[in-house]
Amino acid sequence: MSILIIKNADKFYGKNHVVKSLNLEVDDSEFLTILGPSGCGKTTTLRMIAGFETPDKGSIILKGEDITYLPPYKRHVNTVFQNYALFPNMNVSENIAFGLQQQKKDKATVDKKVTEMLAMVRMSNFAKRKPAELSGGQQQRVAIARAVANNPAILLLDEPLGALDLKLRKQMQFELKSLQQQLNYTFIYVTHDQEEALTMSDRIAVMNEGVIDQLGTPEEIYNSPSTEFVAGFIGDINKLSGKVTAQNELVCNGQNIIANTKNIPNGKEAKIFLRPENIFITQSNNGIPGKILQTVFAGTHTKLEIQLSDGNIVHINEPVNSERRYTHGDSIHLEVKQHTAIIFE
């Protein structure tokens, strides 16, 4: 069942069309990530759900109720802000209690909930500290506890880990994911980090220039991107060109490739998108011929940059423990794993 439906939402900032006729259905209890490059309209979309922006057209429906024009303080959703926005004049407990007090809950209920929330985010020992006396990661936890304390129907998170350093970010990704599973809440999570999206989400909505290009599970998004943008934005990819010769057959640099050609007619030029892990160097002579341009050692593997005979450049990863060593100028042949290439017209 959909807990939230966005129908044909449009948002303009002056003449700037930021969100374009956007449709999105969010399932109950899922971890949905809105993923896209900076400036594509993710924050705007989230703010429309939270109530800080009103769509110029379209509607937003939460649990069957139209909330398009409801002010933020009357919506049953809560936000974890990127900079946390903890109230500097209140300590940790007071921050967490704030939302409950607004609902005029009695003191005993508030105290109980605050204690529970503090334990949940492992901040019980810091209850009386002011936000300024906490580290980034701790502030982050308080911000989450404060938002969750209200029992929102949906928790909105706008790049909540953006301000943390890499190590802490990895740890918090894990914590957030397990928190979501434990609470069984609906999370709408905004990020521009594709790796973060892939590891955390149940489903990902890939957004580009105000439009959702594709909505699907991380596997679907990774393995069968529906647009060139999605293919290019998620994971590493090589872009080659070829020609469709028959249904599900293409020729690329004189070699046949088997892949889903969708409904591209025979004889048409096509773009071939290939993940690095689906291209290998073959010892036989009937692969795509190429020349090694550069090799870069990267720990577990070596990155190879290869120029094909048609001039296209391909990057692949060669396991370090492979027997062969390649150097600049070596001629090699490449083999493509069947049914892995993604084809666009």
Binding site: P72, Y73, A85, F98
Partner: peptide
């Protein structure tokens, strides 16, 4: 003033 403080308060259900 952090502009998000005000939004955070609204978000948590505080009236203007």
């Amino acid at each position: 003033l952090d502009p998000y403080l005000e939004q955070a308060a609204y978000d948590l259900g505080a009236t203007p």
